[in-house]
């Protein structure tokens, strides 16, 4: 890509990533949540890969990292849901942490944790799919 695209990407990608994290963390207060924020955060990586090519930050031939994050995140979501079974009431997906005051950042018990890990899972899934397509194209042309 040209210099203009590369420079604009350098300026914008970090902001897009931060906005994704903002949407994930404030998921229980404002519109958005794990799914939307995860896709926005993945969008910043896709922007970088489109502007600089897949050899940027040595992404070539290695989607192992993002697949590992994705599988770990969904495992942690399952364990968080299971943790409700061990706390007295024995309910799957029980919200057993203290609720706090409604409207503050640290409130709503388990919901921010679910949001964060589902966000990690969605972001790494979409980056993995995009990387797999890019790597497939390079391996086809060889």
């Amino acid at each position: 890509m040209t210099t203009i695209v590369k420079k604009t990407t350098q300026l914008m990608a970090g902001l897009v990533f931060l906005y994704g994290i903002y949407i994930i963390i404030h998921g229980h207060l404002t519109p958005g949540g794990g799914f939307a924020g995860g896709v926005i955060a993945a969008g910043s990586f896709i922007l970088i890969i489109l502007a600089y090519g897949s050899d940027f930050i040595r992404l070539t031939r290695k989607e192992h990292g993002s697949t590992m994050y994705e599988n770990l995140a969904i495992l942690i979501v399952a364990f968080l849901a299971l943790s409700g079974l061990f706390t007295g009431a024995c309910v799957f997906f029980l919200n057993w942490l203290p609720r706090g005051t409604t409207g503050e950042l640290a409130s709503a018990g388990m919901l921010p944790l679910y949001n964060i890990f589902v966000g990690i899972e969605v972001a790494s899934s979409i980056v993995t799919i995009f990387l797999a397509l890019v790597i497939f194209k390079e391996e086809m042309s060889e």
Binding site: H28, F92, S107
Partner: peptide, 21 residues
């Protein structure tokens, strides 16, 4: 019941946790 200001997140992760999983 959920302590969440955003109703949608409350429904998605608390009442309908199975769906989200």
């Amino acid at each position: 019941r959920t302590g969440s200001a955003n109703l949608v997140t409350g429904v998605v992760f608390d009442f309908r946790g199975y769906d989200t999983l």
